[in-house]
Design a protein around this nucleic acid. Sequence first.
DNA 1: ATAGGGTTAG
Length: 605
Amino acid sequence: MVGTSIHHNLCLPHPQQHHQNQKPIDPTSREQECIYHLKKCKNMEDLKQSHSLILKLGLLSSSFCTSNLISISALSHFGSMDYACSIFHQIDCPNSFQFNTMIRGHIKDTNLDEAIVFYNQMLEMGIHPNNFTYPSLLKGCSYLQRLEEGMQLHGHVFKTGLQDDVFVQNSLINMYGKCREITKSCTIFNQMEDLDRNSATWSTIMSAYVNKEMWGECLEMFRELSSRKDWRAEESILVSVLSSCINLNALDLGRSTHGFLIRNLSGLNVIIETTLLDFYLKGGFLETGLLIFERMKVKNQWSYSVMISGLAFHGYGTEALRVFSEMREKGFEPDGVVYISVLTACSHAGLVKDGFTLFEKMKEDKIEPTIEHYGCLVDAMGKVGKVREAFEFIKSMPMEANEVILYSLLGACWVHQDLELGVKIGKKVVELNPQTNGAYVILSNIYAKSQRWELVGLTRKEIAQNAVKTHGFSFIEVKRKVYKFVSNDILWAKCEGVSNILTQMQWQLKFEGYFPDLSEVLHDVDEDEKRERLSRHSQKLAIAFGLIHTSKDSSIRIVRTMRMCKDCHTFTKMISSIYERRIVVRDRNRFHCFENGACSCKDYW
DNA sequence: ATAGGGTTAG
């Protein structure tokens, strides 16, 4: 304790010493003195000393001094809003700077409501909000996704005539983006003069697109931006680019973005490194991902989370568990999301016991398990054939089972040939969502296996009727262009590059004995029939090569289907895909297909 | 006189 006070004396030169060669009576120099002390504060003790100095010199009446005092109290990492408030309330008539600082401080503490109280007080006192007031308030609305308040503030922005301030505009774009009101973001973006747009503007609008899962539009923005002469590479912009690449399977573009980063930036921050890591892992480049992970100088909880789920995704369950314990050793507290990753790893590797141990550990850590956590365990049990236990487990859950969980169990029932339970679950899935074709497919398979042909017919009919409603689509990247093809769409067949790939896939799959020759499919006479078969076929091909996700609206989305060489004739290595209990692993020039062992991985459904 | 906006997965 003695040591600390000595240190502080060193840190804060005594006022008199500083005065020696100056005129001590000059009030501005005394103010400067206080500011000098304030700016040097490193902790609460220093701050209190500066505060008492201000009181001693009778400078609490100096709005410049109190402004700075409030600013340090409210915004520094060691200060507190309580402290700032106590000072603020001693001011008779706070100015706009002081109000803005208090608002910003509350926003920093994610206390939007309190910030709004100050804002209202400001208005009531007739203090005009300025161009510094709105950015912080809107930022608060952004991360709390408070559209209501955000829109009111937008109105105030017009009333105060601040709508042309670039900071205010960027904040508005961001607020609407975070609230998923992309059209409103675009309106503001489009109303801006091109010269007024800065990199924050571009970065904001691009992340707004990513937030809305409009990855193509995000890349379109990037194309527009990068065609300008004066643009500069910025990490925040490229994070959105990479994120879009991941989702569009634009692996070449992603890799050249990586190259661009290396060429143009001296070092990468942890966010972009983590995004890169995710990009490589999702794209199937496990080795590159591992290399990036090992070389990362700064890792955070998120990086670990991405690495763990990446390992799980590639089927390395035990490795994922190892990284998980490394994460704990390094002092990163896992959150609910990391537990989802690590439980997924357990389910992929069939580590039921480890899964349950982790589940208990998680509850000890005071993390409330969500349906996803339960889902992982159901998955794990289903995978090793413990379908009945999994069913009992579902019944014991504190929440209703959702489609994802039932789907997972349904797949397991089929694989382990528990037809009775399969029918039970299948009917439930259909009840929950009558448009899930996958459940019908499995149900019809189960009926066929039990020779209940009438039911097979009925189920197939449902599938045919639903086919129109389900939009499966897939992406293929050929020479830096990403093609999307949708079920019921044979346009891709007209595109030479894409059809080459499909022919190649076809050949590979035929080689593995999965599907009939494409030409056989094309031999059908009836146009409608041909179209239908083709679409089903293309979807099947894509599914066989892809990872399947169910998007929020339950339509099936197929992403990350494959990676092709630039000449689009040869496949590059790796594709790991899971569908209907078949795993296709691409390693160099061979496919390894596995049919045993359930792959009812909920994260792919 | 002091200040402000933008980045990632599950």
